[in-house]
């Protein structure tokens, strides 16, 4: 249930503005890849291209390739809807559907694929996904309450449950902890560690300790100046990146000299 993605020479544009330039990287299966870098360097932009969520923004487009399973995600005959069903996403701010109960939130994606799911099967999926997101014990007695009745950390785990309920190949997370308190953050980091047995995970974070704690590989993005495109400076095993990066800029950033 977990695949790798090979990105080659990817440029991302917003209209005429080149936001990210020339990214080439391999995102390994069953591991956590962290993307770090100063804000505005295009981490979110790059992440969103991996499941074609950039297309939601008018004028946004890519050049280059991202290949999963031998298929170019941007290929002419590839449906973005299909890509997103394989590559799930968790956002910076928890965004459960406020009009749905906790259980319905978990089932939101599943029901897109399969309208008439027998009740027993629905319950099974809800329990599996919520257990997978370390939330089951906290909410099992109030599955019919609105998703917005949960705390921020719980809401974010609900969003993770919603994303994994459809059993995607890859899970993208854009600063999933930046709106959360330290305890909820730890809960989600623990969860990521468990999830990587089954999923390929890419996480954007501007918290370097977090990258060091959770990820197997780390990619460093940087930007030469405002209006210039963001670039991937280097990507390597996290231990290497944090002890002996090959680029000066990486070392400066990691040691806190800028950013």
């Amino acid at each position: 249930m977990s695949k790798r993605i090979d990105v080659s020479d990817l440029d991302v544009y917003y209209g005429d503005f080149l936001a990210v330039e020339g990214v080439t990287m391999t995102i390994e299966a069953r591991s956590i890849t962290a993307l770090i870098g100063p804000s505005g360097c295009g981490k979110s932009t790059f992440l969103r291209t991996l499941n074609r969520m950039h297309e939601v923004i008018p004028g946004a487009r890519v050049e280059g390739k991202a290949v999963m399973d031998g298929v170019d995600l941007y290929g002419k005959h590839v449906d973005p809807v299909e890509v997103r069903r394989q590559i799930g996403m968790v956002f910076q701010r928890p965004n459960p559907f406020p009009t749905m109960s906790i259980a319905d939130n978990v089932l939101a994606g599943v029901k897109l694929n399969n309208r008439r799911l027998p009740r027993s099967e629905q319950e099974e999926i809800v329990e599996r996904a919520l257990t997978g997101a370390n939330l089951w014990n906290e909410v099992k007695d109030r599955l019919n309450r609105p998703g917005s009745s949960l705390s921020g950390g719980q809401q974010q785990r609900l969003c993770i449950a919603r994303a994994i309920a459809v059993r995607p190949q890859v899970l993208l997370m854009d600063e999933p902890c930046s709106a959360l308190d330290p305890i909820s953050t730890l809960a989600i980091e623990d969860l990521m560690n468990e999830l990587k047995d089954d999923y390929t995970i890419v996480i954007v974070t501007h918290n370097m300790q977090q990258a060091a704690r959770v990820s197997d590989r780390t990619g460093f993005f940087n930007i030469a100046g405002t209006g210039k495109p963001g670039r991937l400076i280097e990507i390597d095993d996290t231990s290497v990146m944090f002890s002996s990066p090959s680029q000066k800029a990486t070392e400066d950033y990691i040691s806190g000299r800028f950013g």
């Binding site: 499941n51 939601v56 299909e82 997103r84 559907f97």
Partner: peptide, 15 residues
């Protein structure tokens, strides 16, 4: 409609 919720839905693979 909050963009957040529209994106949540699209990211799940909604048309």
């Amino acid at each position: 409609t909050p963009r957040l919720h529209e994106e949540a839905s699209l990211a799940l693979g909604a048309t």
